[in-house]
Design a protein around this nucleic acid. Structure first.
Lengths: 358, 358
DNA sequence: TCGTACGGTTGGATCGTTCCAGACCCGCCC
DNA sequence: GGGCGGGTCTGGAACGATCCAACCGTACGA
């Protein structure tokens, strides 16, 4: 009878070069210290004697060691991932917000050692996808962006006490106690309207969305109160359409049948482009004949002829604020400000300037 | 002396409801089976007796159990995450490709149980960010999108034998043996040029990028060979500028000083919008007077006046092909086709149609 | 001299899953 | 009746990190 071969590998002996990347144990062996010491070198360097720290760091550097995320995640219960449900921009609208925002978010998150995990979900179910990630403890927190009317995500996530921050204030429930960051749309519309007033326009129309859009209502209120503050009557100058170029184009023709109207403030760049289309069809010159201002400063606004003045959201700042807030939330620290409102700025191009010629 | 309090918790006893989500052990206890059996119910259901399977599934459903991703990732060494380095679209260009592509990728990946992890990197170092994720075994594979001249990522990743697929063929090295998916830019330019020929144009200019852009050269070749096939001479009709509206606008004016030119095929929508600007300045009508075709069918093309004809990349199909290929690569299966070339399509709008009036 | 406090370090246990080897039960065949 | 094989299920070990309790000198004060 042959002896069974002992395949066990003694733990303390130096093993053959492992197949995968080096582990913490590899580093510890190599540096002649224990695993805990290496761990401390990474997470609590000030606990080590300087020369020990240096020696360990040298080995880490030399072996190109990075801690295994899965192991760390399993032990610490934090993945350093932030989940974001990613909806596509609708075709036919110029919503390039997401691109800019997303990059800002990725950059801001990376500064705190986090990554962004994208997921999708059934467009008809705003909650789809969240639960899976939560139950499998795949992400530490969520950034919720599509906070349209109702925002069921907030309640849903709070019920499971999942950490999250919304980009968009809680419209429905002003006493909601979750953290949020938002851009002051009314202030943007105020700036846009004031700008057209300064250009000498008196009859300035509003082209916006249906009444059900809280964001749209907010922006509209900025237009309305600016006109009133100037002693002007907005009655009959506010129009509501769906967010699409053609609907805006047709509505514009209707508005322009009243020749006294010479200015348009729009709830989106898509709508503003519709206004520009109508002007082109009427052979009116944007800027000189009619002033037009859009909203969001999308890529389309930047390349449209003759250059579309637009309200620009400070998405970089939004991203930084979101990450900052998440940081507090994750540390179970009381969030400094529960809601942070940021100011948009106006990017002036020729569509609102009187004195230019093609 | 007081006895030290024994704080140990007996393993076999039923513990109080745990704080976190249910684990595999919870399910096993509840269903009266071992952990392995629950694991099999999830990963190899056909190993279980039907009634056992059903019982386990019922408990899983009832407790709302999802496997902990970190633990699974640690054990199986696969995270089900696909890394994508996310570069922002340049301001002032209308590159809305990323938005559409990204959503398609997220959707395609989710169908195979994968998520997309975004990371950023030093814009000056195309390799930055990859190594960290690799060494910490945070992602299973990469999708590489920015395969401009050189594509150092491919060599870098192959050296560490990290699984990856590129969106973009290996221009520099046609014998590179990594998997890729790409869109046939020359075919797109051919379709665009043919379309303008069908509209009756004979002198059709090309507005493209510098010679160093391989993608640009590829697209240009489609224009050139289509003209030649028609017995037309492209000499003097090809112009190279940087990808920005104003450069294109000025170049267009220069080209239009030769009144025989009545058509433009452009390497990007940004350039095509520059052509439209020049036409507006000359009071020429797009479509009727001069035919214009862009490339990429960006959001700006869709909302520009009077509607910009453009070559549309099948990004949804690209994403599906990428994920499909990754699937093979990850299974260490020989990839069916090393490179997959997809055909773009032409979206016709009024900028290239003769018979329309504002 | 001894107890104590403390910085630095150690090995074992643990997170939740899958891999592995083997146990058990049943029916079948010699 | 015993051996065999296949279907089903079990318990221990492992993945690679961090948490924890304890250990070991040294310095200090009583």
């Amino acid at each position: 009878m042959s002896q069974p071969i002992d395949r066990r590998v003694p733990r303390t002996e130096v093993r053959a070069r492992p197949a995968g990347p080096p582990t913490l144990a590899t580093v510890a062996d190599e540096a002649g210290v224990s695993r805990q010491t290496v761990s401390n070198a990474l997470n609590n360097p000030d606990l080590l004697r300087p020369e020990t720290l240096e020696r360990v760091q040298e080995v880490i550097e030399r072996l190109g060691y990075s801690p295994n995320r899965a192991a760390r995640q399993l032990r610490t219960r934090s993945s350093h991932l932030v989940g974001l449900r990613f909806e596509p921009a609708q075709e036919g609208t110029s919503n390039a917000l997401m691109d800019r925002f997303l990059h800002s978010l990725v950059a801001a998150a990376s500064r705190t050692g986090h990554h962004v995990l994208l997921f999708s979900g059934d467009p008809d179910d705003p909650l789809d996808g969240y639960d899976d990630l939560l139950r499998s403890t795949a992400v530490d927190a969520f950034v919720v962006t599509d906070t349209y009317a109702g925002t069921p995500q907030a309640g849903f996530l709070k019920d499971r006490d999942a950490p999250f921050v919304t980009f968009g204030r809680p419209w429905e429930d002003p006493h909601a106690d979750h953290a949020w960051v938002d851009v002051d749309g009314a202030a943007g519309a105020r700036a846009a309207t004031r700008h057209l007033l300064e250009q000498g326009h008196r009859r300035i129309a509003w082209l916006g969305w249906e009444r059900s859009s809280r964001i749209g209502q907010d922006r509209r209120s900025g237009w309305e109160e600016t006109l009133r503050a100037e002693g002007l009557d907005p009655t009959g100058l506010g129009v509501r359409v769906t967010d699409n170029v053609d609907a805006a184009r047709m509505a514009t023709h209707h508005v322009l049948d009243d020749p006294s109207v010479t200015g348009f403030v729009c709830a989106s760049d898509t709508l503003a482009l519709g206004v520009l289309h109508a002007l082109a069809e009427r052979r009116l010159q944007p800027g000189a004949d009619v002033g037009v201002v859009g909203f969001d400063d999308s890529a389309a606004a930047q390349v449209a002829w003759p250059g579309l003045t637009s309200v620009r959201q400070p998405l970089e700042d939004v991203a930084v604020a979101l990450v900052h807030t998440l940081h507090d939330v994750l540390a179970h620290r009381p969030v400094a400000e529960q809601g942070r409102m940021l100011e948009p700025s106006l990017v002036v191009r020729r569509s609102s300037l009187r004195g230019w010629t093609p």
